[in-house]
Nucleic acid binder design. Structure first.
Length: 848
RNA sequence: GGGCGUAUAGCUCAGUUGGUUAGAGCGCCACCUUGACACGGUGGAGGUCUCCGGUUCGAGUCCGGCUACGCCCACCA
C-alpha cells in the first residue's frame, strides 16, 4: 500500500502500471479453471501490415472493458492476442519495404540481405520463396513488437503468454489439420472452373473479397451478321475486346423481337466465328438492344449462361490480364487471324482500343461509343478489374451450392447472440445470397501451404482426384520441400513420382480457425476444452461475411457447434465530416500521439463512450473530458482519503450517509445489467453521472461534517460513507480507466483494483436511507448557490438566513440533512414553511 | 431493386416497459482565485425531438409513410 501523493498526477502512469501488471501477473489466465468459470475472448488478430490506427484502439478498448468486467465478476478470463501476419498485405509490405519480389523458381540463397526500399516494382530484386518467407517473418516480427507495445500502452488486459501468429507453426498445424479433416469428410474439394482472378496479384479471389467500384466505360453498338443473309443483329457491349471469346448471342425467351432468331446463327464481327442465337431468362430485354453476346468470360452472368446452356469455352484473356498470344483455333478466317494478331499480347484495355479502331474501319461499329459509368468487380485489395479465367482451385463447402447446408449455417447465425442485434441481418443476408462455395486456394507464396501432393502418372500429369495426404502428426508441412510417405525427394516432378501442391490457403482459411488456434486445439486439448466454445467474438461489422461467417463454417464442420455464444460488432471511426476514416485521405492521427497528449485512460474513455456497433466520430474533445475525469478521480480520492482512516466499526448516524450507499447500490445494479448486455457505454455513462454527482453534490454536502464540524460521531459516519463510496467507484471505473483506477486504489488498499470483485447491488436497503434526503439537500443547495452566483459572490460567502417553502414531504426530508445543508452553504439560520412548490429565499450576510 | 441503420441544443450524444416543465458534456456568456482539484467550481442562455399522418386521456418514445444521410447485398450486355 502506498500513500497519497501531495500532488497527484497522471504523468508516467502507463509506464508504471504496464510494468506492474506484467510483473504481478494480474491478467494471467487461470488454466486450471473449468469451462464454466472461464470467459474466453476470440480476439481479432490485427493484420500486420504497417501500423495500428484509431479504429483498432476503438474496438479493442471495447473488448478490453468487457474482459476486465468479467474478470472482476470472478471469471477466469482467457484473453489472448494474435497477429495476422499471413497473406497478401504482408507480401505487399515486404516487397515495398525490402525491395524484393518472390520468384518461386529461384533457389534459396543462405544469408541473403535485401537491398532495401525501392521505388518501382521493376527494380525489385527477385528472390526465392524461402528467402521471401524469411523476409516476411523478419518484417512482421518487428511490426509485432510495435503492435504489442501499443496495445500494452492502451492497457489491454491480454495474457501475452497466449500470443499466436497466423503464420506460426501452431497456426499452420491447426489450419492444415482442419483442412485435411474437411477433405476427409468431403467438405473440401478441388475443381477446375471459371474463377474470378486478379491479374496483378495473379491469384484467384473469393466471393467475400469482392467489391464493386464505379468505373468509366462505354457502350459500343456492334453488328453481328446473320448467316442466313437476313441482315445484322446488333448488340450493345462494354467489352468489345472480348469479341474473340464470343460463344453465342442470348435474348430473353419471351422477347418477341428475337424469338424468330432463336436457333439461327450469326458470325462475329472482325473474327467471323459462327455462333448460335440462344434464349435464356437472365437476358434482360430492357438492357442495351435486348440481346447480348456471351463470352467466356466477361462476367459472372456469362458463367451462368455458359454452364446452363452448355456452351463451349473460348478463353482469350490470360492470367496476366493480356490477350493470349496464339491465334485460337476457332478463328479460321484470314481477316479474323489478322485481327487477333493485332491484339495478341496486349492488355485488355489496349486490346479494346485496337478493336474499336478495327470495328470502325470495318463499319461494324455503329455510331460512336457512348461513355458511361458502371460498377465493376474488383478484388478488395486490387487495382484492376477482375477477369474470369478457368483454373483448378480448392473450395470448402459453405452452403452456396447446397440448401441443406445453407439452412444449417443460417440456423447457427440465429443461435448466436448478436450485439447489436440487427447485425444478424447482415449474416442472414450474406449466407442467403451465396452463389458458390468458398474458394480457399491462392496462387501466392506467404501463407499456409495446402498440405497435399499429387501422384504423377506415367505421362507426368498430376492426378488431382487422388491427392497424397500427410499424417496429422507430421503437420505442419510444406509440400514444396517435404515429401509424401513412401516417396523420396528424387521422385519429385518425375513421371510416376509426385508433385507438391503449389498453392497456399487464403488468410481467411486460417483466421477462420482463431478459436482453435488461440485455444491450442490439437496441441493442448486440455486447454481447448476449457475455452471452447468461446464466450465472445468481437469484430468489425464489415467482416461479418468473411471472418465471422467462415469461423462459423469451420466450427460447424469440425465441432458441430457455434464457435462462441456472443458476437459483438464494433462500428467505424468516422472523420468529423462523417466519412470513414482512412489512411488514403491522410487524416489518420496516430494513437501514440493521442496517448501522449491525453493519456491512455482518456483515449479509452472516448472509445468506451461509443454505443456498441455505432459508427463514431473521431473526437478529441471526448478525450479531453476523459482526461478531466481521470484527474478528478485522483483529486477526489486524495481529498476523501485526507479525512483519515477510521478505527473499528462505525455507526452511520446520518440518513444521507445511508442514502448515498443505497444510491450507489442502485448504480451498481444498473452498471452490472448494462455490462451483462455488453452495453459498456451505458454502464460508463451511469457510473460517470453518479461520480460527478458524488463530487459536486455529495462531497460538498458532507465535507463540513467530515471535517468534524458536527462532532466526532457524525464525522465518523460521513467519512465512512465517503470511503465506502470511493472504494466502489474505484472498482466501477477500473474497466474503463484501468491506470487511474489502479493508481488511486493502491494509495489506500492492498493489491490491484483489477483483481477486486465487481461491486454488485446487494439489494439491501436500510429504511433510514431514503434518497429523498439527497434530493432535498441538492434542491435547496442549488438555490443557495444560484443566489450567490447571481450576487456574484464566492460560494463560501456567508448566508444570514435561508427560508424554505416546500411541500411537507420535502421539508420532512430536509430536516434530516439540514445540519449538512447549513454547513455546505455557510448558512447561519434556516427556517421553513409548508407550501405547494419549492421556494427558497436566501439572505446573504453583509460583505466584510 | 432488396435488406439494415441513423435523424433530439451550435457540436458529440443520452433519453430501457409511452406519463409532470426533454437531459449531459463540450462550446458560448457571467461570475467565484473557497482550507481536494483553476487540468477547478457556481450560475445562465440555447431545442416546434427531420417532416406528414395514425393509435392514446397523454407520443421524443408505439404504428404507417415521406425526406435526408450512411452501410450491406444484388445489378454490371
Amino acid at each position: 500500500m502506498a500513500t497519497v501523493p501531495d500532488k497527484p498526477t497522471l504523468d508516467g502512469i502507463e509506464e508504471r502500471f504496464v510494468a506492474a501488471w506484467e510483473s504481478e501477473g494480474i491478467y494471467a489466465f487461470d488454466r486450471a479453471a473449468p469451462r464454466s468459470a472461464v470467459y474466453a475472448v476470440d480476439t481479432p488478430p490485427p493484420t500486420v501490415s504497417g501500423s495500428l490506427h484509431m479504429g483498432h484502439v476503438f474496438s479493442y478498448t471495447h473488448t478490453d472493458v468487457v474482459a476486465r468486467y468479467q474478470r472482476m465478476r470472478g471469471r477466469a478470463v482467457f484473453y489472448p492476442m494474435g497477429w495476422d501476419d499471413n497473406g497478401l498485405p504482408t507480401e505487399r509490405r515486404v516487397q515495398n519495404y525490402f525491395g524484393v519480389r518472390c520468384d518461386p523458381s529461384l533457389p534459396y540463397v543462405p544469408g541473403f540481405e535485401p537491398p532495401g526500399v525501392q521505388g518501382k516494382a521493376t527494380e525489385q530484386v527477385p528472390v526465392s520463396r524461402p528467402n521471401f518467407i524469411e523476409l516476411c517473418e523478419r518484417l512482421t516480427h518487428d511490426d509485432e513488437k510495435v503492435f504489442e507495445a501499443l496495445f500494452r500502452r492502451l492497457g489491454l488486459s491480454v495474457d501475452w503468454r497466449y500470443l499466436y501468429t497466423t503464420i506460426g507453426d501452431a497456426a499452420r498445424r491447426v489450419s492444415q489439420r482442419a483442412f485435411l479433416r474437411n477433405l476427409a469428410r468431403g467438405e473440401a474439394y478441388s475443381q477446375e472452373a471459371p474463377t474470378l482472378w486478379d491479374v496483378d496479384f495473379r491469384t484467384a479471389v473469393a466471393q467475400a473479397e469482392l467489391e464493386d467500384r464505379e468505373q468509366p466505360g462505354a457502350y459500343h453498338k456492334v453488328a453481328f451478321h446473320r448467316t442466313d443473309g437476313g441482315g445484322d443483329v446488333v448488340i450493345d457491349t462494354t467489352r468489345p475486346e472480348l469479341l474473340a471469346s464470343c460463344v453465342a448471342m442470348v435474348a430473353h425467351p419471351d422477347d418477341a423481337r428475337y424469338q424468330p432468331l432463336f436457333g439461327a446463327t450469326v458470325t462475329t464481327p472482325l473474327f467471323g466465328v459462327e455462333v448460335p442465337i440462344v434464349a435464356h431468362p437472365l437476358a434482360d430485354p430492357d438492357k442495351g438492344t435486348g440481346i447480348a453476346m456471351i463470352c467466356t468470360f466477361g462476367d459472372l452472368t456469362d458463367v451462368i449462361w455458359w454452364r446452363e446452356l452448355r456452351l463451349p469455352t473460348r478463353a482469350t484473356v490470360g492470367r496476366d490480364g493480356r490477350i493470349l498470344p496464339e491465334v485460337p483455333d476457332w478463328i479460321t478466317t484470314d481477316g479474323g487471324r489478322a485481327a487477333y494478331d493485332s491484339i495478341a499480347g496486349r492488355t485488355v484495355k489496349q486490346a479494346q482500343a485496337r478493336l474499336v479502331e478495327l470495328l470502325r474501319e470495318s463499319g461494324e461499329l455503329l455510331g460512336d461509343p457512348r461513355p458511361i459509368t458502371h460498377p465493376v468487380k474488383f478484388f478488395e485489395k486490387g487495382d484492376r478489374p477482375l477477369e474470369i479465367v478457368t483454373t483448378r482451385q480448392w473450395y470448402i463447402r459453405n452452403g452456396g451450392r447446397d440448401d441443406v447446408l445453407r439452412e444449417a449455417l443460417q440456423a447457427r447465425g440465429r443461435a448466436l447472440a448478436w450485439f447489436p442485434e440487427h447485425m444478424w441481418h447482415r449474416y442472414e443476408n450474406w449466407v442467403g445470397g451465396l452463389n458458390g462455395d468458398w474458394l480457399i486456394s491462392r496462387q501466392r507464396f506467404f501463407g499456409v501451404p495446402i498440405p497435399l501432393w499429387y501422384p504423377l502418372g506415367a505421362d507426368g500429369e498430376p492426378d488431382h482426384d487422388h491427392p497424397l495426404v500427410p499424417a496429422e502428426s507430421a503437420l505442419p508441412i510444406d509440400p514444396s520441400t517435404d515429401v509424401p510417405d513412401g516417396f523420396t525427394e528424387d521422385r519429385r516432378g518425375v513421371p510416376g513420382g509426385f508433385v507438391g501442391e503449389a498453392d497456399v490457403m487464403d488468410t481467411w482459411a486460417t483466421s477462420s480457425l482463431t478459436p482453435q488456434i488461440a485455444g491450442r486445439w490439437s496441441d493442448d486439448d486440455d486447454l481447448f476444452v476449457r475455452v471452447f466454445p468461446m464466450d465472445v467474438r468481437p469484430q468489425a461489422h464489415d467482416i461479418i461475411r468473411t471472418w465471422l461467417f467462415s469461423t462459423v463454417v469451420r466450427s460447424h464442420f469440425e465441432h458441430d457447434s457455434l464457435p462462441w455464444a456472443n458476437a459483438t460488432l464494433s462500428g467505424w471511426i468516422l472523420d468529423p465530416d462523417r466519412k470513414k476514416m482512412s489512411k488514403s485521405k491522410g487524416n489518420v492521427v496516430t494513437p501514440i500521439e493521442l496517448f501522449d497528449k491525453y493519456g491512455s485512460d482518456a483515449v479509452r474513455y472516448w472509445a468506451a463512450c461509443a454505443r456498441p456497433g455505432t459508427d463514431t466520430a473521431f473526437d478529441e474533445g471526448q478525450m479531453k473530458i476523459g482526461r478531466k475525469l481521470a484527474t478528478k478521480l485522483l483529486n477526489v480520492t486524495k481529498f476523501v482519503l485526507g479525512f483519515g482512516e477510521l478505527a473499528g466499526q462505525v455507526e452511520l448516524t446520518d440518513p444521507v450517509d445511508v442514502a448515498v450507499l443505497n444510491r450507489l447500490a442502485e448504480l451498481c445494479g444498473e452498471a452490472t445489467r448494462a455490462f451483462d448486455a455488453y452495453d459498456y457505454a451505458r454502464a460508463l455513462e451511469r457510473i460517470e453521472a453518479f461520480f460527478w454527482w458524488f463530487c459536486d453534490d455529495f462531497v460538498e454536502l458532507v465535507k463540513g461534517r467530515a471535517y468534524g464540524a458536527l462532532g466526532p460521531e457524525r464525522q465518523a459516519s460521513a467519512v465512512a460513507a465517503l470511503r465506502s463510496v470511493l472504494a466502489d467507484l474505484h472498482k466501477l471505473f477500473a474497466p474503463f480507466l484501468p491506470f487511474a483506477a489502479d493508481e488511486v486504489w493502491r494509495w489506500w488498499q492492498d493489491g490491484s483494483v483489477h483483481t477486486q470483485p465487481w461491486p454488485l447491488d446487494t439489494g439491501a436497503r436500510a429504511t433510514m436511507g431514503d434518497q429523498a434526503v439527497l434530493d432535498a439537500a441538492s434542491a435547496v443547495l442549488s438555490d443557495i448557490r444560484r443566489a450567490k452566483s447571481e450576487a456574484k459572490v464566492s460560494m463560501r460567502a456567508a448566508v444570514e438566513h435561508v427560508h424554505v417553502v416546500a411541500p411537507a414531504a420535502l421539508l420532512d426530508a430536509l430536516v434530516l440533512v439540514q445540519d449538512d445543508v447549513k454547513e455546505a452553504g455557510s448558512v447561519a439560520a434556516l427556517t421553513s414553511a409548508v407550501g405547494d412548490t419549492l421556494e427558497v429565499t436566501v439572505r446573504l450576510a453583509p460583505a466584510g
